[in-house]
Write a protein that binds this DNA or RNA. Structure first.
Lengths: 245, 245
DNA sequence: GCGACTTGTTAATCTAAATCATTAATCGAA
DNA sequence: TTCGATTAATGATTTAGATTAACAAGTCGC
């Protein structure tokens, strides 16, 4: 499976010096590319799932469905993200993943990946590093839901989406095509749709963003950052990448 | 640093077959034991921190402080947990860690640990596995804050604390000494203290728990589980532990 | 054993956001 | 192009939970 131009390569390059051997090792264990249609469920809540899926293109959500019918979105999945984390480390999944658009990703069974880690230990560390990023993003989500006001939450979410899209080359300096409906954002931020809509308008009224259709322009990203108390942090590089063995 | 009886050993044993060599390898890289007093700040928000600290005894919280003075607790740290995750993978910490009781833990610099990973790849995987557990617990926290009612949240929190304490031998089958004040639980669950208090009484009124002082008895843990839609999941064991190299 | 501080409990008020209900606009597919 | 479905925008009502305040009960240190 050739990795050229794959969003995960862009992403990994920011964490480690990915040399030709590394790329070859990954290409060797990646099994196949999969395309699924919009609205397809990739992971079923309650079922086991034991693969890492590296998203190349398209959008998805990881969410938990409650008996009441309420849905909490845990993570907005963008190109460069890994589907199958952390569920692949457990006996079954307690949440679902659904494609929001047509989606293409590259699959690698978790056992195959761990086998590689025994031969090339840096990949075990890569996994830890990706996991740390994931945990940090979840932590931010917790702060958002627990102690930020709705307008701060939305400001924070927009900044985060922009930063993550920008990282993989899918956003301009101060604007981006928002790939998520208000329903999705409401379920991510723990708000009702009407309220999210009102908060969105508030951001526009305060000249912090402007948007038509789904193009968001961060008219005043400094102001947004202040409102949301947004503080981007940088991953430390993985140390000691001289190869042993 | 001898590991015998250390809570992290109990915890790791559940994830992998920890043989004598593994224990020796860990003991070799663990640098020292540290005891700190109640209320000491272990990690300062905004500062870098590059160590893994394995908690042996005592309790702590990881939290974010906002400008408004509001505090969101991200995680209740118990014996067997790792302080320094995920902050050690970033250039600086965006949250603080503070001891709630006198606390003892064993320190290992992150660089020392990663060096070990190159020699003994299973430890890189261990780190990923711990990270996955961390992420899963954060995910549950997100669901709690976003889409569960206060009483469901508290029920869920109590069940989770019980399970985690039980894992390291610090809880009885249906009861445990709650080491956290209502202030702490309120800040974890995104509630005000008076409201948390009311919800606590509601749980008692509905005969789901009984408590005096800080001893919690789960009088009806099945009912609690139903209320909270609590679903414990099991970590899959780390595969392929035959040693290479 | 005494005072100081921390923790737990209770009540009254008030606001933010959910809910419910409807309409308008867009998009996709036939 | 039109129809149906999804998404966005409003308004009216209601309620959950924050806020504030005051007090009781523990607990700690001296």
């Amino acid at each position: 499976m050739p990795l050229n131009g794959h969003a995960i390569k862009t992403r990994l390059t920011r964490v480690m010096k990915l040399n030709a051997d590394d790329v070859a090792a990954l290409e060797a264990i990646f099994e196949r590319d999969v395309c699924v249609k919009k609205r397809q469920e990739l992971i079923i809540q309650g079922s086991p799932f034991r693969s890492l899926c590296f998203v190349q293109d398209g959008y998805a959500i990881r969410y938990r469905l409650l008996r009441s019918g309420k849905r909490q979105i845990l993570k907005l999945i963008l190109p460069g993200d890994v589907i199958g984390f952390p569920v692949s480390f457990f006996d079954r999944s307690t949440y679902a993943v659904e494609a929001l658009t047509d989606l293409t990703y590259t699959v690698c069974g978790i056992d195959r990946y761990t086998r590689l880690c025994y031969e090339q230990p840096q990949f075990g560390l890569v996994l830890s590093w990706l996991a740390a990023q994931e945990a940090a993003s979840y932590a931010e989500h917790i702060v958002n839901l627990g102690r930020r006001t709705p307008i701060e939450r939305l400001a924070h979410l927009l900044l985060e989406i922009h930063a993550r899209l920008f990282q993989v080359g899918l956003a301009q300096e101060t604007s981006f095509a928002l790939p998520f409906s208000q329903q999705v954002m409401a379920d991510a931020l723990g708000l009702s749709v009407p309220h999210l809509n009102r908060v969105m308008q508030q951001l526009r009224a305060e000249q912090l963003i402007s948007s038509n259709a789904r193009l968001i322009v961060l008219s005043d990203s400094a102001g947004l950052g202040r409102l949301a108390q947004y503080q981007p942090i940088n991953l430390a590089p993985i140390p000691l990448l001289e190869r042993h063995c």
